[in-house]
Design a protein around this nucleic acid. Sequence first.
DNA 1: ACTCCCCCCTGTTAGC
DNA 2: TGCTAACAGGGGGGAG
Length: 292
Amino acid sequence: MPELPEVETVRAGLERHVVGRTVGTAAILNPRAVRRDLAGPDGFAAAMVGRTFLRAERRGKYLWFALDDTEALLAHLGMSGQLLVGDPGRPLSPHVRARFTFDDDGPDLRFTDQRTFGHVMLVPLVYPGDESRVVPAPIAHIAPDPLEAAFDPRAFAGRLTGRKTQLKRALLDQSLISGIGNIYADEALWRAKLHWARPTETLKPAEVSRLLGAVREVLTEALEVGGTSFDALYVNVNGESGYFDRSLNAYGREGQPCGRCGTPIRRDAFMNRSSFSCPRCQQAPRRPGPSG
DNA sequence: ACTCCCCCCTGTTAGC
DNA sequence: TGCTAACAGGGGGGAG
């Protein structure tokens, strides 16, 4: 379940192990991995040969390598995507979807993805709106994430309370604030003592800043321990797990006591998935937001 | 313009 | 024991 802390952990690993190196060969082992690339598997692979990874960057859950001033290799890990760096001679696992070797004959890069929700593509770099930062064209509509300099807390507060929806839906909307998924949404809401169904238009300024503080806290703390791993589906570029699952207060803890008040954590069906919260610390709104 | 819901996919687990 | 169904969930795209 790669969200911002997991993707950032992967990005940092790629910066260390891949940046500065030049692609020798590129192979697409499953065409679905490049389904969003207009050039198709063969065109994509051919266009990648000889390109040098100049920088490893990230916004929210997307990461990319700048290849020059105008193009980038964009990647999204989806649910189960991994970018693994290792001995080019090691066995090829059945879930490897794309493989890049380098002209220095060093460690190769493998995009591995059991459930194939992730993808990679070669894309143009553009300036979105009034921002100073260059980003890949397909993600120009994604909002800055709360850990980057371009994030504007006041603009976020205004757009959040201007919506007519439930708070958790808004937190998961990458065009409003990026990098947050189901796990960290539940964790941030628990910390801020806010209910997932709270109508966004009723949020007070103090509640919004409490929420943003909780979001930044939980993302930062998870990042410090390498992200959250429940199983082998999320690992860093060396195949190692993160440790934040030990620090979860709400997510996945149905029936277990709330760390603050002891009330059993409750699980609600939400958007075809689950929402975990403390029924006592996180008071349900009298009138839930739309689609509650 | 904004909000919402379905669907893409595979491996694991719960339940009958 | 063996099958089926539910579940995990990010986000694109289309419906409303």
